[in-house]
Amino acid sequence: MLPNEIYNNLKTEFGDAIIEYNDAQPTDPFILISTGMLFDICHTLRDNEEFLFDYLMSLSGMDLGENVGVVYHLYSMKYKHKLVLKVVAPKTDPKVPSVEMIWRSADWHEREAYDLMGVIFEGHHNMIRILCPYDWEGFPLRKDYKVPEIYRGMKVS
């Protein structure tokens, strides 16, 4: 199934929760969805007989200036079709529902996105840092990140 067909099917089912379909070159076509319905949409994408997206290839965070975004790359082992989903949340309140209950591989991906980009995934069972030390301050891959002078008595630069 092609991304625009998936978009039309989702649009009839979820309506306003599906914000935009974008097939501008050179990137893969993606569907922008609202954070509120993310869990239900992902659940449908995995379990509906038409889609069967049983594999989350990657989950990544983005810094968009005012907002942070999360990108989901999905793949179906049965139908061999792919889909890109995007959600956007403001930096002041960067909360996105967790899809860890749907795809287990999202567990560590979400922790990494939290660690480096500061996206808080609501409903994740263990939302702690994964790469940086637990007492690290700030989210290093954000564009407005300030490198600390000293960490535990060691000079950083």
Binding site: C132, P140, Y145, V147, P148, M154, K155, V156, S157
Partner: peptide
């Protein structure tokens, strides 16, 4: 050395 926020700049610092 310049942009690594996470790397100790030489083990002889500890």
């Amino acid at each position: 050395f310049e942009h690594g926020y996470h790397v100790l700049k030489g083990v002889d610092r500890i």
